[in-house]
Design a binder for these strands. Structure first.
Lengths: 222, 222
DNA sequence: GAGTATTTCAAACGATCGTATGAAAAGCAA
DNA sequence: TTGCTTTTCATACGATCGTTTGAAATACTC
């Protein structure tokens, strides 16, 4: 009898929307730091300062709350990644173009971790979802991973003559792999929040390493 | 009153050791596929075909069981990684030596995922522990990550003239990042267990990409 | 064999979990 | 205000959680 998506007729009062977002904020933080199973509905509602039943009222279930936490942020994350790539690909040309593309992508991936508080928790959240999926299978990959990786792949081929489509796809995986791991290292360091110079050095290394890697994936030309 | 480590006087009977290992086997599988919080002691004991209280008797607590699951495998994992590096570093020389080192390391990381069943679950287990730590902080990094990464770092510098210690350390992070992400992709593909040629192509790409990346981290020489 | 130590067992403990329910509270249109 | 909808609330349900307990069963020593 459950069609899978919880639907309330509308958001009537303003206070209704307020507690709804307080719930999402609290849930986002706790799902990120503790994981889905270890986060209880009671913890979330207590943190949000509202009643236990509010979760089931607003989101149908604990799982519905979890999915809405992602849905609320996914558009912004995807657009941020795509925009920073588009910005660079339109401007840069010549021998340093590859580094520019890589730097734009890496920075847009790493910097939100320390700039805004949402970035850090969101990265942790995504890391957990990757290992312990609770979202519909198509949701995460289709709405974030897919578009972003395809966009980066195309940008790489634009600035790297001779890079095949398959090679570009593999390079994207190598780059994302480095970034995910680096992001986790940064996020883990909660006490000492990575000084800006150290963060900049981290991004610089990934750019240099990846540029060398991408160029090594181009078949040798006369 | 709990000194942190559960100590039974000895392993007296053989049947005692048998159920102890059945518990570890079952727990390893379930912790890997479901995570710590989502795996219940009752599930484990039912899977192991023994009584509920056996976990607390043999390991003191659920957490004690979890830690013992890791302790049982860590030595073997570390030795396997180090041995494959040592084997290559002693033999290879010349221009292809970097690729040989990278291939040895990547293969020892990826191949257990499909060869033996332990490798796959262990990789998933490690991935979960990285995001959701339940081990004493020094245990995992000190016994696996540390020695392996230092060994790879030294091997890279041996076959790559001009690579600084700091640069080697960063390159190790880049390589490990690629491998961890690739391992997760492989493990995720449970239905179609990655044909051997596809796996070989995956390793080959990581070797080529990383070789280019490492060489790009050497300061330009005359 | 008896006697001791080790291991297994069924049963229960208190706690917490996600969810459901129906009544109070609040918001809003008339 | 009245009447209706939306939101909040206290409370309870059944299930499952990790752990404990004391007795039964098993293994081992002598």
């Amino acid at each position: 009898m459950n069609e899978g998506v919880h639907q309330r007729r509308d958001v009537g009062s303003e206070s209704g929307a307020q507690t709804r977002e307080r719930l999402l904020d609290a849930a986002e933080t706790m799902f990120a730091s503790r994981g889905f199973a270890a986060t209880s509905v009671r913890h979330v509602t207590r943190e949000a300062g509202c009643n236990l039943a509010a979760v089931n009222y607003h989101f149908g279930s604990k799982l519905g709350l979890y999915q809405e936490v992602f849905r609320r942020r996914m558009d912004a994350v995807r657009e941020q990644r795509l925009a920073s790539l588009r910005r660079v690909a339109a401007v840069e040309q010549g021998p340093g173009a590859l580094e520019a593309v890589l730097h734009a992508f890496a920075a847009s991936f790493i910097e939100p971790l320390v700039d805004q508080s949402h970035g850090r928790t969101l990265t942790e959240l995504i890391g957990r979802e990757m290992l312990d999926p609770h979202l519909p299978p198509q949701m995460f990959r289709a709405e974030i991973a897919g578009p972003v990786q395809q966009s980066l792949s195309q940008a790489l081929r634009t600035v790297t003559p001779g890079l095949s489509e398959e090679a570009a796809r593999q390079c994207v995986q190598s780059i994302v792999g480095q970034l995910v791991q680096a992001a986790q290292r940064v996020s883990r360091q909660q006490a000492t929040p990575f000084s800006p110079p150290a963060l900049s050095a981290l991004v610089d290394h990934i750019v240099r390493f990846s540029a060398g890697g991408v160029r090594a994936c181009v078949p040798a030309s006369g």
